[in-house]
Design a protein around this nucleic acid. Structure first.
Lengths: 333, 333
DNA sequence: CAATCGATAACAATCGGTTGCCAAAAGTTG
DNA sequence: CAACTTTTGGCAACCGATTGTTATCGATTG
């Protein structure tokens, strides 16, 4: 049988060297109090000398706990997720765990198959911007420890950034600039948050007496921006609310190419405040949220670190605020 | 003893249900040919019906192979690494493995302690932009499967993007624009690639009869740009070569704030061609490399997928090309 | 001085697969 | 039909740690 790489010393080596039983070594290392202080000290010294490290695989087998958390994002190339990844990585490490990262490429099937594949290797899952249906997620949540980011479902712990209030801020901002017709450049059909954004836009626009139209969907990436820009230009709205910053940045570029001036001819707003939103041209007005914090919280919820252990499933809503930059301005008359 | 989460069916359940021995189940699932086709079919059906999935932990224990690869990056917030992460994730998944991501926060100690902690849980390590010394890396490479990105050390497999030729392209470009004095805004002291870049800049500049100065080091982040911009302005060089695009973008912003015009008053060049380099203001001239490919290749090398198994340790050098945009122009007279 | 009690350490089962070896069954040949 | 070869399946050990249970030892106490 192939030996594990490197022939690292095992608990048996330590036990033999220290002249005690393996169980004593195990307890000395993990469970102080069950073993004499002197013996314990001796064992620790021997372990140190031999360069012993406990084998995480062997430890995980009986307990079923791997000290590992998986994070899935719907598109690893979207800078929006960097904050989430970073926060989750930090918090996971702070809890002495390890983070596994997966890209689900906007595919609900890849999500569930990834979960299936990693079951047993991880203690729980954080899924950001899931593309699965409510039913699928509910079913998965029943069989695994699972926390959501940017998705809210009854009975499943989640962290989202306040989209309703955020969208209100956007509409209010545009209304105060005199816009009376806005277009929402929609995100993926399966995106829960895209649906919520449109709902909020429509409802708030009505309150402010603003016409709102939904165009698209478009790929939520820079390359989707050209079609989106052309669509909104054809539609005639004076303000465009892009599903996310990637799309918005792509639109800015297209407008520049076509000689459309932003914000003189048209205002553009995005969501997420990603890296680059503050130095694109013109700098983008966008809804900012604490996504790093969202990543941290999601891991906390998953590990049960946070909260008084109340019976209710925690549904955290983080505040959002509009970062107003130069891509929005007074409506053309 | 706590049962593993969910009480998933084991190979024993399948064996009992199918009326065969566990070894037969194991072989039927993994080793076709050692078991009768009919029996095998039956076992597979039973496994399917029971919803059986092999427990990766249990499988890993005897073999010592976890089908898992770890990737460490020196700063998870740097978009430069996104391409690498993405490529590594893709290739890992393509090989049926799982990627573990770690942030080492520019700290050599965190690198080695992370490696130590994950030893036994992963089959190998990919370290991008390692901050460890050659000796430490060599020592680590002796005890673990290890591949480097953006770092070259005798005897350790690695993938780098051609910095010498790339730097030659930068200097040549600046020379052709009439610049006679360039400044290199240095990256972290422990960065191998920062040292290499400066070497190449100095050597090539001499060939072209250009004066070269090294300023810094500066934090390789947008926030480092202000100090870097002021330094190069004070120095008087007409062209600035920033250690990376983050720093370059930070400089562009500072120049804009101070009313220094790029490229009329000063030219700016970066390295990496990160997300945002093409839409910052002005768009950044920068050295582009195939970093996604680098991530893929590094995983390939690690897993031994690539190569004819030659005895020499593979040291891949990927080509680079200068993406010329609007941040460079003729030298002011 | 003996009985009892507590602290400490050892034994052994267990987690869920994999695999070397052997035995039984099936098939082949003289 | 017997002897022999080839499949095929089962037994059992093993990976390295954890943990419930039991044995042992010394100390305390009636």
């Amino acid at each position: 049988m192939a030996r594990g790489a490197g022939n690292r010393p095992t608990i048996y080596d330590v036990a033999r060297e220290a002249g005690v039983a393996t169980s004593t070594v195990s307890r000395a290392l993990a469970n102080p109090g069950r073993v004499n202080a002197r013996t314990r000290q001796h064992i620790i010294e021997v372990a140190e000398r031999l360069g012993y490290h406990t084998n995480p695989i062997a430890r995980a087998l009986p307990s079923g706990r791997t000290q590992t958390v998986a994070l899935f994002v719907s598109d690893i190339t979207n800078p929006h997720f960097f904050g989430i990844i970073r926060g989750a990585e930090q918090q996971t490490r702070a809890a002495g765990r390890t983070l596994i990262l997966g890209d689900t490429e906007e595919s609900p099937d890849l999500e569930s198959s990834n979960v299936e594949q990693l079951t047993g290797s991880v203690d729980g899952f954080v899924i950001a911007a899931s593309r699965m249906s409510d039913e699928e997620i509910g079913e998965l949540a029943g069989r695994h420890r699972l926390t959501l980011i940017s998705r809210q479902i009854e009975g499943v712990p989640s962290v989202i950034v306040d989209h309703e209030d955020g969208t209100r801020q956007i509409i209010e901002h545009l209304a105060s600039l005199g816009h009376t017709s806005v277009a929402y450049l929609a995100g993926p059909r399966r995106s829960w948050i895209a649906a919520k954004r449109w709902q909020a836009i429509r409802a708030t626009a009505r309150q402010f007496g603003i016409r709102a139209a939904r165009l698209g969907p478009f790929p939520p990436a820079v390359r989707g921006g050209a079609a989106a820009a052309d669509a909104v230009f054809g539609h005639g709205a004076t303000a465009a609310i892009a599903h996310n910053d990637l799309l918005a940045i792509g639109m800015l570029r297209r407008f520049a190419d076509r000689g459309v001036q932003v914000p003189k001819d048209i205002s553009v707003v995005g969501y997420d405040d990603i890296f680059g939103a503050d130095f694109c041209s013109p700098p983008l007005t966008t809804l900012a949220g604490q996504f790093e914090e969202a990543g941290r919280l999601a891991v906390d919820l998953l590990l049960g670190t946070r909260g008084s252990g109340s019976a209710r499933t925690p549904q955290v809503v983080l505040p959002s605020h509009l970062a107003i930059r130069q891509s929005t301005g007074p409506a053309p008359r």
